[in-house]
Design a protein around this nucleic acid. Structure first.
Lengths: 200, 200
DNA sequence: GACGGCATCATAGCAACGCTAGACATCCTG
DNA sequence: CAGGATGTCTAGCGTTGCTATGATGCCGTC
């Protein structure tokens, strides 16, 4: 392999990332429905077929953006967890960071959770960033808790529901803080015990 | 207004519903990506422009399907709640019914919560069926609970998250029952109290 | 009962979409 | 310097949501 080939490969990798960031920026400023292969090609100053030499199709581009998003989300959650004053506040900090991420980068969040992508979940070939983000939730629960994964799944589900329902206006977008408070208290505040009549 | 006009209006209303059910059936058997205006027109044995004399566009058609879905969901939840053996079991019954609805009618659920629609939420012109479904959750909590709406919002969010994340394979689709159990116990099992270190 | 007016419907077409085959140029290799 | 491979663009295919135009048939009126 000559040095020239290496340079070409570098350029190619650079252009690969250029396409991804262009797609993301376009989505963040004008929404995903504005991200067409033509506009994207024009934006990176190449013709359409170049996109298809890098990605199998539009879905693959969206998937690449989503994958970047998962990495950022994992890092964002990790930062929040480690910055928590005490371990008991870790869950709250991570949950708040999650909602923050979803509301501040709605287009990115859409790519990760709503748009059709090629990403494989909950399987052997699940990309590490996905698992990493999930693990941040798991880490908020005591290691000797046998059901921390279950806790994490439900917490994540609730947060995702809150994020997407409020973003689409199905629940009022204020009151999000109050809902978060309630969720944290109920999930983390008390150990499980047999069902009792409904609350306060 | 002559009798003839009345008949035409009846026929028109009938055809209106025909379009909606055709769209729904097509979506349920082949998925929403197979629901194109051409295929839909062929299915109802009219030409494309007829669709546009009934609906403003494709989004309006899926909105109509979604609206029907909200009615059915509300009825489904209501049945479940009223069939609960005791009031303390109402919440569990409604939540289980919700997940049942989402998993058994995935296309319909998509129209209601994922696809872009024209429906207005959480405002004055919110269609009654939407509010009715939400109220079934609210009714599961004690009337003297000042925050039942908040409870209902969080419960709904969690269920929606579970439904959509498991449907898209982001969390394993078995274990749904276990997650439901955990959610119910945490939401309804204990009144709120100040945050304590994380659970069992 | 024939006729003008109106509402209804289908044919045909537009712009934009994702995607691809083929021609063209460019650069490395022998 | 010629030959071949690599990379890129132009042009176009089939399909999408949506609509302007023209034909068809029914209604109310003289």
């Amino acid at each position: 392999m000559s040095a020239i080939s290496e340079r070409r490969e570098r350029e190619r990798a650079h252009r690969h990332q250029l396409i991804i960031t262009a797609a993301r920026e376009l989505a963040e400023t004008e929404g995903w429905e504005a991200v067409t292969t033509r506009r994207l090609a024009e934006r990176v100053e190449y013709s359409q077929p170049v996109l298809y030499s890098h990605f199998n199709g539009k879905d693959a581009i969206v998937s690449a953006v989503a994958l970047d998003g998962f990495s950022e989300l994992a890092a964002h959650l990790r930062r929040a967890r480690q910055a928590a004053p005490e371990p008991g506040e870790a869950l709250r900090a991570v949950c708040r960071a999650y909602l923050e991420f979803a509301t501040e980068r709605p287009a990115l969040y859409q790519a990760m959770f709503i748009l059709p992508t090629d990403l494989k979940f909950a399987s052997a070939e699940t990309p590490p960033p996905l698992r990493a983000g999930f693990d941040e939730f798991v880490s908020c629960f005591s290691p000797d808790n046998e059901r921390r994964e279950l806790f994490a799944e439900v917490t994540w589900s609730a947060l995702h529901g809150m994020a997407v329902l409020s973003d689409s206006g199905r629940i009022p977008s204020d009151g999000q803080e109050e809902r978060l408070d309630f969720l944290i208290t109920q999930i983390a505040g008390t150990p499980m015990r047999p069902t009792a009549p409904q609350g306060a």
